[in-house]
Nucleic acid binder design. Structure first.
Length: 279
DNA sequence: AGCCAGGGTCTGC
DNA sequence: GCAGACCATGGC
């Protein structure tokens, strides 16, 4: 199917805070770039768009599909009550500090395969470089969406490649891991639709059958690709943040949304110097 | 130049 | 079950 850039504009009312800079550049997604102040361009699925927030509305430019409104409402999680979430989190002072630091963060609902591959690439890597590798991946094997934008490659397209093909990615030792993931998904050995319906422990175990996927990458896929909001990926920054701010672990009331709490705490620990120094 | 990064695997205890 | 070496790459 052929897509051409369009000027179609979707306007979505915001009932809670949404800060695009905080949400799109806090390490949960890697395909968004700020092209002018406050305007971000990126791709989700086969939709390449520019987005910005103005006076309580989210503007999405470039998607003329009939379901554009529903798609972007879902992507930016606009059907979830973040005021209620932040009230729950703010009952605990360390979490209140994290929420107040960046209250416009929301959990994006990304595609399962894209999230899986992206976080395989993320292992022992820097956020900036993860984005660069993913960009090369999409430019080479994604669908051309026009305007210099490319979709995320399909499992089938990646599964047809060999390791030497992947060398230009400069992904290091992770290339064989992402190839294994693509082969398993494309062959049907790993059915992501089935994973979505599995109990948490089984879903995690299914993902961890992929070479190079341990508990952290599996949890990132579950949180960002399957919207398991109770899953909390523990990377080096979260370990530091939890040790400094919540040494007793998550409060009971937070556990069902620990993944969302994690997003605030991760960003706080990683970017605010005072967060880890006895705040 | 060395250290680190949204880790995982393998080995050895 | 846990510690340590090792893995590719590039920014700082």
């Amino acid at each position: 199917m052929l897509h051409t850039p369009t000027s179609a504009l979707t306007i979505l009312p915001l009932e809670d805070a949404l800060c695009l800079d905080q949400t799109l550049h806090c390490g949960q997604a890697f395909r968004w770039r700020e092209i002018s102040p406050g305007v971000h361009r990126g791709v989700a699925g086969d939709r390449a768009v520019s987005v910005w927030v103005q006076q309580g509305y989210l503007y999405v430019s470039g998607d003329d599909a009939p379901d554009a409104e529903a798609f972007w409402r879902n992507y930016f999680d606009l059907n979830t009550d973040y005021t209620a979430i932040k009230t729950t989190l703010s009952a605990h002072p360390p979490l209140k500090a994290a929420v107040d630091y960046a209250p416009g963060i929301r959990l994006l609902r990304q595609g399962a395969f894209e999230a899986l591959i992206s976080f395989i690439i993320s292992q022992n890597n820097h956020i900036g470089r993860i984005g660069a590798i993913i960009e090369r991946l999409c430019e080479r094997w994604g669908e051309d969406l026009g305007g210099g934008a490319y979709s995320f490659p399909t499992p089938e397209r990646l599964a047809a490649l060999s390791l030497p093909d992947l060398a230009p990615l400069q992904a290091g030792y992770r290339d064989k891991y992402l190839l294994d993931a693509a082969v398993r998904v494309a062959s049907g050995a790993l059915d992501l639709t089935e994973v979505a319906a599995l109990p948490l422990a089984e879903a995690r175990a299914a993902l961890m059958e992929i070479k190079g996927v341990g508990i952290k990458v599996a949890d990132c896929a579950l949180l960002y690709g399957f919207y398991r909001a109770e899953v909390c990926p523990m990377d080096v920054w979260m370990k530091r943040g939890m040790a400094a701010l919540l040494p007793e672990g998550w409060p009971e009331s937070v556990r069902p949304i620990a993944g969302i709490a994690q997003q605030y705490l991760f960003h706080y620990a990683r970017t605010c110097p005072e967060a880890l120094s006895g705040g």
